[in-house]
Simulated scan of single mutants.
Amino acid sequence: MNITIGKPWAVCEKGGRQNNEDSIYPLPEMVNSNQKLFLVCDGVGGSEKGEIASSLACESFQTFFSTFLDDEPSEEFINKAIRYTEARFDDYVNTHPEAKGMATTLTMVSVGTSGVTLAHVGDSRIYQFRQGEILYQTEDHSLVNSLVKLGKITKEEASTHPQKNVIVRAIQSTEHPTEADVILLKDIQAGDYFFMCTDGVLERLKNEDLSYIFSTHNNPEDIKDAIMASCCGKTRDNFSFYILPVQNVGESIGIKQNILSFLYSFI
């Protein structure tokens, strides 16, 4: 499968907070359509250096992938990247003890030849949209989502629950190891969008709002502007997101097939 991504659009804003604990990779000014790895992280901890945690997670994942990835990232490989990131957190806290307790959510999209691999930890989300319809959505690792699954509260009650920002899984340290939920999506079509975001976006936009935006705007820049209009100056939290438009999906042709095709052209 040969998946071509159009120009990605990204935003990383501090919103209503004094500092920005969100981080994304790559930075908007560095991204291009050849990029295969995308990360959006939301630092946890406030005074415990959440902004360091999210930034270090992006840096560590990028380093691990660029150093060790040979093929498609498996669930095992991604969780090894988490182990590496947790060790990096330990190193930082050893020299900066005031950062003890820092943690971060993580969402990851990796575009490969078998499909698109998604991974997430925490309550930052990844969506796959097709003509505005949500084909896939990650499931939050949060207290309120656990309560919804147990039937203790409704989805409507979860949106206003006083503990709605409490997460039950985060990247933190080797003393508190965690794992990502990982899935490989193979149903990919030209015109699909992958959307990664922190919960600051979800503070303003529910699923039906996002579906409306993705169904009524014809290009990713307009989608970005519509989300910005909903969030800018209106959120209490930081808000960050990546919009990844699928431009084309074709069959991959191996090197041997290319050589044979070239030779046959002379027969």
Rank of each mutant, 00 (worst) to 15 (best):
residue 250 G to F: 06
residue 82 I to T: 00
residue 33 S to N: 11
residue 27 L to G: 05
residue 42 D to F: 06
residue 162 P to H: 14
residue 65 F to C: 08
residue 190 A to K: 07
residue 163 Q to A: 14
residue 25 Y to T: 00
residue 46 G to S: 14
residue 31 V to Q: 05
residue 174 T to I: 10
residue 226 A to F: 05
residue 41 C to R: 09
residue 242 Y to R: 05
residue 166 V to Q: 08
residue 100 K to C: 06
residue 89 F to R: 11
residue 8 P to Q: 05
residue 237 D to M: 09
residue 216 T to H: 10
residue 206 K to I: 06
residue 202 L to D: 02
residue 92 Y to H: 14
residue 10 A to R: 03
residue 192 D to I: 04
residue 65 F to D: 02
residue 19 N to A: 09
residue 232 C to M: 12
residue 159 S to A: 15
residue 190 A to W: 03
residue 77 F to T: 00
residue 11 V to M: 05
residue 229 A to S: 13
residue 265 S to D: 09
residue 151 G to H: 10
residue 197 C to Q: 03
residue 160 T to L: 09
residue 29 E to H: 13
residue 141 H to F: 07
residue 115 G to K: 09
residue 15 G to C: 06
residue 180 A to C: 08
residue 123 D to W: 10
residue 108 M to E: 03
residue 253 I to M: 12
residue 229 A to E: 12
residue 155 K to E: 15
residue 227 I to V: 11
residue 191 G to H: 11
residue 236 R to W: 04
residue 229 A to V: 00
residue 88 R to M: 11
residue 201 V to N: 00
residue 173 S to T: 00
residue 77 F to H: 08
residue 259 I to V: 15
residue 101 G to Y: 13
residue 148 V to N: 03
residue 187 D to T: 12
residue 187 D to G: 14
residue 160 T to D: 02
residue 79 N to Q: 11
residue 160 T to K: 15
residue 266 F to D: 06
residue 199 D to N: 11
residue 116 V to E: 05
residue 13 E to C: 10
residue 215 S to L: 03
residue 169 R to F: 02
residue 27 L to K: 14
residue 116 V to M: 12
residue 137 Q to H: 09
residue 74 S to R: 07
residue 110 S to C: 12
residue 145 N to H: 13
residue 234 K to F: 06
residue 179 E to C: 01
residue 157 E to W: 08
residue 260 L to C: 08
residue 219 N to C: 07
residue 132 G to L: 09
residue 75 E to A: 13
residue 55 S to C: 13
residue 180 A to F: 01
residue 159 S to M: 14
residue 258 N to F: 07
residue 94 N to H: 04
residue 229 A to D: 11
residue 193 Y to R: 02
residue 46 G to H: 13
residue 96 H to T: 12
residue 244 L to Q: 04
residue 24 I to H: 03
residue 196 M to S: 01
residue 109 V to Q: 01
residue 262 F to P: 00
residue 32 N to C: 13
residue 234 K to I: 06
residue 207 N to P: 02
residue 83 R to K: 15
residue 160 T to A: 12
residue 153 I to F: 07
residue 224 K to D: 05
residue 37 L to V: 08
residue 141 H to I: 05
residue 185 L to C: 04
residue 52 I to E: 12
residue 253 I to S: 07
residue 99 A to V: 04
residue 179 E to Y: 02
residue 93 V to T: 12
residue 49 K to F: 13
residue 212 Y to N: 10
residue 195 F to L: 02
residue 41 C to K: 02
residue 182 V to Q: 08
residue 128 Q to E: 05
residue 52 I to W: 07
residue 12 C to P: 03
residue 163 Q to C: 12
residue 19 N to P: 00
residue 3 I to R: 00
residue 32 N to K: 11
residue 138 T to G: 08
residue 154 T to N: 08
residue 8 P to D: 11
residue 50 G to A: 13
residue 106 L to I: 04
residue 211 S to F: 02
residue 264 Y to F: 15
residue 183 I to S: 09
residue 39 L to D: 00
residue 252 S to I: 11
residue 94 N to I: 03
residue 40 V to P: 02
residue 187 D to K: 15
residue 86 E to S: 11
residue 149 K to Q: 15
residue 57 A to E: 13
residue 138 T to F: 04
residue 75 E to D: 15
